[in-house]
Design a protein around this nucleic acid. Structure first.
Length: 831
DNA sequence: CTCGGCAGAATTTTT
DNA sequence: TTCTGCCGAG
């Protein structure tokens, strides 16, 4: 048990990195294994060139098994139990929303381990997100003790793919230390390839080709496999060739993109019988989470690995497949039984999350879809609960006001803000809500917004580190060669490229060479020489000091931090702060390479940005999958926005069904309350557009819905409007609107002007501002809207600061991190 | 080479 | 409306 103590004392984040597994493995290897029942004798040997395949299950240590009903099985319902216990042969678990899917998955793993059916290293369990992987590790740890780090093959498709590819890199024409490119790098590279072929990048944008290449890779297609029709679609048939050239460039850069992390292992497994045998033998059990989201490549990968023993268990929900646009094939889950004959299919339909009303509404909606296995969620929790409230409003601003005030209501009644979420279809919808929350000083958190590692300053810092770790990394070198500005412009870069190509060396080497010769202007030459010398120095230092110190040194000596310090813009302080955060996060890794590997596969960072913990959640519907909240707000249910017109145009019925699944996901996130709303007018790209309520509203069973007329909903829809809405949204549902006092008042105010004109803009804008103020006054406990000089305040965007001056309702605030800013008093709260 | 101005495009995005 | 990327002037 000494082991357990040490394991839990370890930093959890450390354990989540792939390289940490190696360490954990070594750690396990040198341990006194007799004290840890799950210590895995195989894992330590994994990296040996010819690792012995594991012992047959029955040749392992004697199964000292707990009695007939181990603790971890208690509390499972019959279906869940079956899903946990059905270990032999293929199993498809159709797990509806809120039916305890993760619990089944983790319990199943625990069961395999506890019954000694396999060692931890003989189980392959794949998830899509790092978050899901982390959660599984934690939950398994909780079930069987803190031995999670002994599960080397629990991870995302991509991290496991990367692991396999690193092990056999040479078979794919790569070195084991290859770089993993993210979207940004990928796009840059594709652009270079297009330009090198003299194709007009304006006419044939790199983004388009990037999307096509991704699509091909998702479908498991190497350049040679790309069908003619597909290849025809880009630059008069040059698509395939460009794809091939891109792949060639990747190899010469010793780099792989995300797609390659799946594709290359497939090629390796297909082309090398012994390797395939080794893995097939190794993985006695396979588990796949979110199977409905797998694409063809992932499917092929799984089929290859499942090979011989076919102990594969996939868990998913066809009704929650919302990533077809990213290559996911709902087909995979729909045809599982055909792919794996004799598969056992278990449906989890008992929902432990939502009220009967919410389930009824969600089921009624999803029933309109044709392509599905068909499940009926049920619950037996007491009362039916509140009906789904559907409300029509004038515009997005009113929508945000309603949501915010409803959230405040619930909050006053004791519901934590963190138990509420606003789920939008597209991120541009978030703005209105953020503004409103800011104005009311409602703490909120945006989930899935811009990623930490995608910020420019972070990517720059990483580029420096990448060049140090991997001199071949041209993309990284190019990124920072003139950042901070060193006077190395296009001309010099071009010369570098030419030289690199002629001498067939990486850019960095070319830079070093050009720093010696006199091909370049003296100034550029001296700068290049100085830069390459700096890198040489950093590389020399690297082994001798902690990588965090190295990072600090690099950022300082390169002039990068000075550049930010000299920058007077309000963001620069935050950028410096981010860099500090980056260095802090590096502490959790053993080495620079371990850190870089983590960064490329895990695009997130644990945020400890202070501020209140109880915050209202704001995110896209996609980001909400897998989460649950007491109350869910679903704004923007309008034709064109949701379902999205573009999806409808591009994907037709299939697209509509995916949008409907998205709506289903949204509703089923709620435990007790759902508020749907739609706005009659919305500003899209600065243009006002009118909209009709979404057809999904009409598809919600009437019995579970409560229609409410918003105060600002004027219902003046000319000849169109709800009455003609082909969705069949009932006229009677809104009849009350037309005669409500609110509506009459509104009519009186507005006269006969049409809501389709811009006439309302000024008036509405003004009244909203007044309203916002009024709300601030009523919410602030003192009733005062002005702050005194010297008061500590908190601003959602700029953080904490001190009031320096007050001018009417504007404050001059000296923010701790963001510097001096002029802000409206309504946008800050008392610190 | 650098900065400023203007045109054109703007869903969803697990890795 | 707002951001990005490109082009022309200094």
């Amino acid at each position: 048990m000494r082991f357990l103590a040490r394991a839990t004392a370890c930093d959890k984040r450390k354990l989540s990195s792939d390289t940490a597994h190696h360490q954990a493995a070594t750690f396990l290897g040198i341990m006194d294994t007799s004290s840890n029942p799950y210590a895995d004798p195989l894992d330590a040997a994994f990296d040996a060139p010819s690792a012995e395949p594991g012992p047959a299950p029955d040749s392992g240590p004697a199964p000292a098994r707990p009695g007939p009903d181990p603790a971890y099985l208690r509390g499972l319902n019959a279906e869940q139990r079956e899903a946990v216990l059905a270990l032999d042969g293929p199993v498809l678990v159709l797990a509806g929303a809120g039916t305890g899917k993760t619990r089944v998955l983790t319990t199943r793993l625990a069961h395999i381990l506890a019954t000694r059916r396999a060692w931890p290293s003989q189980i392959l369990s794949v998830t899509f997100t790092n978050k899901a992987a982390r959660e599984m590790k934690e939950r398994i740890g909780a079930l069987i003790g803190g031995t999670v780090e002994g599960m080397p093959w629990l991870g995302t498709f991509h991290s496991i793919g990367a692991r396999i590819l690193r092990r056999h890199a040479e078979l794919a024409g790569l070195k084991p230390n290859f770089t993993i490119l993210d979207q940004d790098d990928q796009l840059r590279l594709i652009k270079q390839v297009i330009e090198a072929e003299n194709i007009d990048e304006k006419r044939w944008p790199a983004r388009t080709l990037a999307a096509m290449i991704d699509g091909w890779k998702n479908r498991g297609l190497a350049p040679a496999d790309v069908p003619d029709g597909d290849a025809q679609a880009f630059a008069f048939g040059k698509g395939r060739n460009l794809y091939a050239l891109y792949q060639k460039r990747l190899k010469s850069l010793n780099a792989a993109d995300f797609g390659d992390l799946l594709l290359e292992p497939i090629a390796i497994l297909r082309g090398n019988r012994e390797i395939l045998d080794d893995y097939q033998h190794r993985f006695r059990y396979m588990l796949v989470d979110e199977y409905q989201d797998t694409n063809v490549a992932q499917y092929l990968w799984l089929r290859l690995l499942a090979g011989a023993n076919k102990n594969i268990c996939v868990v998913g929900d066809d009704d929650q497949s919302i990533y077809a646009w990213r290559g996911a094939e709902v087909e995979n889950i729909l045809r599982f039984e055909r792919d794996f004959p004799g598969a056992k299919v278990i449906k989890l339909e008992r929902n432990y999350r939502s009220t009967a009303t919410i389930l009824g509404a969600a089921s009624g909606l999803i029933a309109a879809n044709r392509a599905r296995h068909g499940k009926t969620l049920w619950t037996d929790t007491g009362s039916d609960g509140d009906k789904v409230r559907v409300q029509g409003v004038w515009d997005a601003e009113e929508e945000a006001r309603n949501v915010a005030s409803e959230a405040e209501n619930l909050h006053r009644k004791g519901q934590p803000l963190a138990q509420m979420a606003v789920l939008v279809r597209a991120s541009f919808q978030m703005r209105e809500f953020e503004e409103r929350f800011l104005a009311l000083a409602i703490p909120y958190r945006v989930i899935g917004g811009p990623r930490f590692y995608e910020r420019a300053e972070i990517r720059d810092a990483l580029a420096y580190l990448r060049v140090i770790a991997q001199g071949d990394d041209d993309l990284a070198f190019e990124r920072i060669v003139n950042k901070p500005k060193r006077g190395l412009g296009d001309a010099t870069i071009q010369a570098l490229h030419n030289h690199a190509r002629a001498a067939n060396v990486p850019l960095f080497a070319a830079a070093a060479e050009l720093g010696e010769t006199d091909e370049l202007a003296p100034k550029a030459r001296a700068t290049l020489a100085a830069l390459t010398r700096s890198f040489d120095r950093w590389r020399q230092q690297a082994p001798h000091l902690p990588h965090t110190e190295l990072a600090e040194m690099v950022l300082d000596e390169s002039g990068y931090t000075d550049m930010l310090k000299a920058d007077k813009s309000p963001e620069s302080a935050g950028r410096l702060e981010n860099l500090k955060e980056l260095v802090r996060s590096m502490e959790n890794f053993e080495s620079l390479t371990a850190f870089l590997e983590h960064v490329s596969l895990v695009m997130e960072i644990e945020q400890n940005d202070g501020g209140p913990t109880d915050r209202l959640n704001l995110m896209t519907l996609h980001a909400a999958k897998g989460l649950e909240f007491e109350t869910v707000f679903l704004p923007g249910w309008e034709e064109g926005l949701f379902p999205s017109q573009r999806t409808l145009d591009e994907k037709g019925t299939a697209g509509l069904e995916e949008e409907r699944r998205l709506a289903y996901v949204g509703i089923t996130r709620a435990k007790s309350r759902v508020f749907v709303s739609f706005a009659a007018n919305r500003r899209v790209h600065g243009q006002w557009q009118s909209a009709l309520p979404s057809r999904f509203i009409g598809e919600l069973p009437e019995a579970h819905v409560d229609n409410v007329a918003g105060e600002g909903f004027y219902g003046n829809y000319g000849g169109g409007g709800f009455r003609d809405n082909q969705s069949g949204y009932g006229t009677q549902a809104f009849d009350s609107t037309y005669s409500s006092p609110g509506w009459r008042r509104a009519q009186a105010q507005r006269g006969s002007s049409s809501p389709f004109t811009n006439a309302h803009e000024g008036a509405r804008g003004r009244s909203a501002t007044i309203d916002a103020k009024a709300r601030v006054v009523t919410t602030a406990d003192s009733g005062a809207s002005a702050y005194a000089v010297g008061a500590r305040v908190f601003h959602q965007k700029f953080g904490y600061g001190r009031v320096v001056a007050v001018e009417g309702n504007k404050l001059l605030v000296d923010f701790d991190k963001a510097g001096s800013k002029r802000v409206m008093d309504a946008f800050v709260g008392k610190a």
